[in-house]
Amino acid sequence: MAFPLRDESTRRQVPWTVLTLIAVNVAIFLFLQPASLQRGESETGSLSRDEQLEVTTHFAEWGSIPCEVRSLESRADGAGGRCTRDTDDRPLVDGKPVLASLLTALFLHGSIIHLAANMLFLWVFGAAVEDRFGPGPFLGLYLVGGVAGTLAYVAVNSGSAEPVVGASGAISAVMGAFLLIGGRRRILSFVAPLPLVVVTLPAWALLGPYLVSQLVTPDDTAVAVQAHAGGMVAGFVIALVLRFFIPTAGQVRRRRRDRTDAPPPVDPATWTIPDRPPVTAEG
């Protein structure tokens, strides 16, 4: 296992979009999702019956359910026939906006560890991607990549009634984009259980095994590996498209920063800036 800790690239602009996304995800987990998820008991399975019901209802209401996405209507509104797997103890939600759930699911997390891991990856890889493409395209990449990841999961598990939640698909998209723009950049990483403990590695050495692990992990785990793999491929493709069709994305911001950083050249003979006319007594 290798966990990224920090991108060793040179200092960039403050990644406001990444920071905002982290703040939104954390705030939703802490203040809008069921409080029982914060205590870590959902991981140990020691929730009370009422708490368990609250959590499953919450995820059924706001998470993406593959069989609902497939039929574009909620289970309560008639999609039940398409749901052939994982239907036990799943509450029905009337009038659920199924399409919107593709987006809302991106901002839900199942546990504090789920949230912490996702936010760590978003912070390490997201800042560079935002710096390259700018805030708007980055946000588009995040959301579209996340939805694409969820759709990849839906394609493989179309009969499932189990909700899929988490920003993992969107963050995998960001990682896919990072692979394109900075595959050779150095990432300070924690490598376990091998020696050295903390070492800088090229990004491809982290992201390559990650993608392979998502492709080869068996389907019976609680992790939506198809969403990760789909999101990563989608992110790579979106970044490729952005680079090809909007090559100037993010450059305006970088130029502005460079202008701010570099003092204007002054001609020592006249004490004027060369690209402006000298100030004369008459003028």
């Binding site: 296992m1 290798a2 490598v191 091998l194 590695l201 090229p202 050495a205 390559g208 095994p209 392979v212 692990s213 080869v216 992990t217």
Partner: peptide
Amino acid sequence: VVGLVAVLLAWT
């Protein structure tokens, strides 16, 4: 680095 990737893949 390549060796490290091989080990990580083998664990995976």
